[in-house]
Design a protein around this nucleic acid. Structure first.
Length: 654
DNA sequence: CTAGGGTTAG
């Protein structure tokens, strides 16, 4: 059009600007903005709205800065003036003439104009925030309508400027414009983020009063908002009342369940969604796969993976990251690695998921190597990435490397360590026996250390049998977290192990007074696509008698091989025989015995336990793996232990 | 011309 000499009018630009937005091409977009100004149609409502939307969407796009600096000097004065906005360049008729000149050089002129404004533009991107661009457009608009306000409000909300967004809603009301469905669905995510269910409900009420509550967009936002405020019941209710549902409404309700650990419920909605014939969007899998990862239901994860491959969603970075995580959590680290290697692009989350996987399997050097590759790739590690690499170091006892990463986090990336980083460091130093150093690190924290950080050190005190430090640590834990009975359980174990019976008894009395109820630890094993769960002393399993018999036989053989049960930490006062029996009834042993009797010889046995495998069981499983000649893989909350031929992959360092 | 959901976390 430009080449033919036809001067575009205001009706052209909204569509063109939308194209630039959808193409995610800031250079082109700002070139068109230049054109808008030159042609003199920047005062039109729709054009201004489209421009603001474009700049809001371009926020966060980076990568052209260096090029921009190089080109800055070559920039034409004309473009510089209107893009930096210090003075408004009058658009005179001769300029318009040149730009719309009907000549053979038309195309060249056009591309020249684009090129020079590109250079200016990219630089402008660097020197002004998107906010300034939007603001400039917004402030100079002669007329603003609801769409103008909604655009700026959504732009602020999506770019994390929450207070700014909310302020603009109030300003909007002051100019006698009513917030509509667009406004509400833009600001609801803010209250989800703030976990402010009261404000969220206020919006819900407003939506009902104005008959917006059957709007699918508002519905999804409400479902999400309630879910993030731990009010799943309300999420389900909103979903139920929606007259129409699209794939996003379904995905929101599935995610709502998963975020609140209602995995079975979430899977139920997932199946319903498929039955209703809703088109499966990539996001659907991003909620369901993590559920498989949590439940470690490998068979379901594999089915989903097969489905994903068939519909060609393999290359979606969200899905691929979830698959990496799912396979790693289900014990298939090679498969996770394979998917990771096949991804054409890695972002910070996929690197982190892979590192966590390696950490989980004790492959610390792989995790560190991944971290280095990530940095070399120009991907900035964030808070979570550092948790991953520190956890990996902790599981392999790499104290020096961990210290280096811990320091690098603040020094090189300006991320201040949070409680997870301190917990990982405390765990690591503690396992390495550097209890004093761990204590000092925690004591040096910028904020009051929560109980969880001290607990890492307490576990180390137990392994290294340091009663005095443990007492000190428990005191700190109880001060910040008086309900933490777990700490008392460990303390009582530590006293028992040191044969300080009186102290052990004293702690147990305290526990009783606090209304101590032992939360049972649970172990799961998947046999022929069915998950079997065991808790300590539970005899409700149909094969309990056989399991018990098998354990008895194993026990004899183990003792012949030199296994001595470690009775020192058994909680209750009872005779040795009773103590033995109580150890034998630990959930992981029941699960392993069930695995042995219900799978063919030689099959690997995989167990998931919801808390740390106990000291005695760790030793016992080594014996069992040798006696039955099987590989036994036990995953506790934080890591995998591979037992084979009487040895464990993590040695005695666990 | 404007709006909603999703991946990693001891």
């Amino acid at each position: 059009m430009r080449a033919s000499g036809k001067c575009p009018d205001q009706r052209v630009f909204p569509a063109v600007l939308k194209c630039c937005t959808l193409l995610r091409d800031p250079k082109l977009g700002e070139a068109v903005h230049g054109c808008v100004i030159k042609v003199g149609v920047d005062g039109y409502l729709y054009t201004g709205n489209a421009l603001m939307n474009m700049y809001a969407k371009f926020q966060g796009m980076v990568g052209l800065e260096n090029q921009a600096l190089e080109l800055f000097d070559e920039m034409h004065e004309l473009e510089r003036s209107f893009l930096t906005g210090n003075e408004s360049e009058p658009v005179d008729e001769s300029e318009k003439c040149v730009l719309s000149n009907e000549s053979n050089d038309g195309l060249k002129l056009r591309s020249d104009a684009l090129d020079s404004s590109n250079q200016a533009t990219v630089t402008a991107n660097r020197i002004c925030l998107w906010k300034d661009n939007v603001r400039k457009v917004f402030d100079t608009m002669p007329i603003r309508d609801v769409v103008s306000w909604n655009t700026v409000i959504a732009g602020n909300a999506q770019n994390g400027l929450y207070e700014e967004a909310l302020m603009m809603v109030r300003e909007m009301v002051d100019t006698n414009l009513r917030p509509d469905a667009f406004t509400l669905s833009s600001i609801l995510p803010i209250f989800a983020e703030y976990v402010d269910v009261n404000k969220g409900k206020e919006i819900h009420g407003y939506a009902i009063r104005h008959r917006f509550d059957s709007d699918m967009f508002i519905g999804s936002s409400l479902i999400d908002m309630y879910a993030k405020c731990s009010r799943v019941e309300d999420s389900l209710q909103v979903f139920k009342l929606l007259p129409r549902r699209d794939s996003i409404s379904w995905n929101s309700v599935i995610a709502a369940c998963m975020q609140n650990l209602m995995f079975d419920e979430g899977l139920k909605y997932f199946r319903h969604m498929i039955n209703y014939g809703v088109k499966l969007m990539p996001a659907a899998f991003s909620s369901v796969l993590p559920a498989c990862a949590h439940l470690t239901t490998l068979h379901l994860g594999k089915q989903l993976h097969g489905y994903i491959t068939r519909v060609g969603l393999d290359d979606n970075i969200f899905i691929a990251s979830s698959l990496v995580d799912m396979y790693a959590k289900c014990g298939k680290i090679e498969q996770a690695r394979c998917i990771f290697n096949r991804m054409e692009r890695h972002d910070m989350v996929s690197w982190t998921a892979m590192m966590m996987g390696c950490a989980l399997h004790g492959h610390a050097h792989d995790a560190i190597s991944l971290f280095k590759h990530m940095e070399a790739d120009g991907v900035r590690p964030n808070y979570v990435a550092f948790i991953a690499v520190l956890t990996a170091c902790s599981h392999a006892g790499l104290a020096e490397e961990a210290r280096e990463y811990f320091d690098s986090m603040t020094r090189d990336y300006g991320i201040s360590p949070g409680l997870e980083h301190y917990a990982a460091m405390a765990d690591l130093l503690g396992r390495a026996g550097k209890l004093q150093e761990a204590y000092e690190l925690i004591a040096s924290m910028q904020f009051e250390p929560p109980g969880g950080v001290w607990s890492a050190l307490l576990a180390a005190c137990r392994v290294h049998k340091n009663v005095e430090l443990a007492e000190n640590v428990v005191e700190k834990i109880i001060r910040v977290d008086p309900e933490n009975i777990g700490a008392l359980v460990i303390m009582s174990n530590i006293y028992s192990a040191a044969k300080r019976w009186k102290d052990a008894a004293r702690v147990r009395i305290m526990m009783k007074e606090m209304g101590f109820r032992k939360k049972p630890a649970c172990s799961w094993i998947e046999v022929r696509n069915k998950v079997h769960a065991f808790i300590a002393g539970d005899n409700s399993h149909p094969l309990y008698d056989k399991i018990n018999e098998a354990l008895g036989v194993l026990s004899d053989q183990m003792e012949r091989e030199g296994y001595v049960p470690d009775l020192s930490e058994v909680l209750h006062d009872m005779g040795d025989e009773e103590k033995r029996r109580s150890l034998q009834n630990h959930s992981e042993r029941l699960a392993i015995a069930f695995g042995i009797i219900s799978t063919p010889p030689g099959t690997t046995i995989r167990i998931i336990k919801n808390i740390r495998v106990c000291l005695d069981c760790h030793v016992a499983i080594k014996f069992i793996s040798k006696i039955v000649g099987r590989e036994i893989i036990v995953r506790d909350n934080s890591r995998f232990h591979h037992f084979k031929d009487g040895k464990c992959s993590c040695g005695d360092y666990w």
